[in-house]
Amino acid sequence: MAVVATTEPGARPARAGRRASIPGWVGTVPFLAYVGVFLLLPTGIVIVDALKNPSGAWQFSSVTELGNPLVRTYFIGSLKLCLISSVIGAVFGAILAYAVASGNPDGVVRRLYLAASGVLAQFGGITLAFAFLTLLGPVGLLAHASWFYDFPWGIALIYAYFEIPLMVLVFMPAIDGLKVQWREASENLGASAWQYWRHVGGPLLAPAFIGSTLLLFANALSAFATIEAWESQIAYIVPQQISISLSSEVGLSNINYADVLALGMMVMVAIIMTGYALLQRRASRWLR
């Protein structure tokens, strides 16, 4: 294996490679073992269990439970919430990212917003639901908003709180990639501000924008803590239903309900991520 490594294109003639008798891949065994047990194995368990009944026999029909009208409601609920919150997050996040990026690259405003975005994008969860509860909930300081517990708009507003910062983080590099010369060159050739965005800025940012939106969508899809703290009595979306079926024995009999739901989500995320990767590749063709 070490010989393979040294003849690989781009590989340096490793001094140690000739001397060592252990193959190179041995060095990665601890990592591979860890990932194998705590990432690949659980994923495999989900897939296998989704395709088996509790007694252990293969039963592909359990997957058809995804077509069950009740189950479909949760998936539609998830889709609605994610679509609304990711589009809101993407549009407003892009505006904010542009405002931040057009300032001093070394300035305090930029640092403050990026650090805050880092915290808020990752740190949503329980805390976030509490924060909005104190602002707009039944005892809210600003208003006792009647729509606070409405699905999907009430919760979408709370989701926007972590989706916008996430957009700032993932979209900022694309905006920074817009070179000043492109704007100046288009202006020089006679373009108005609107024509610049229509013909140059817009098309250049479009793949990154759509890609980032997909990432926001995936992020919202798997969010669970926020909605659980917002309303734990009624299940609207798939993750809540997974939680219920994991923590109680109730559920559709005869199949591994949680596994089937998880598999359904996995397929959704996989579709989104593939789209994201394709768009990103397109974007990088221009920006690199």
Partner: peptide, 17 residues
């Protein structure tokens, strides 16, 4: 990979482990 297998899915498979 964990980006595509978010916590809520992972936890289902982690339960038996």
């Amino acid at each position: 990979l964990p980006l595509t297998i978010p916590a809520i899915i992972l936890v289902v498979g982690l339960a038996p482990i």
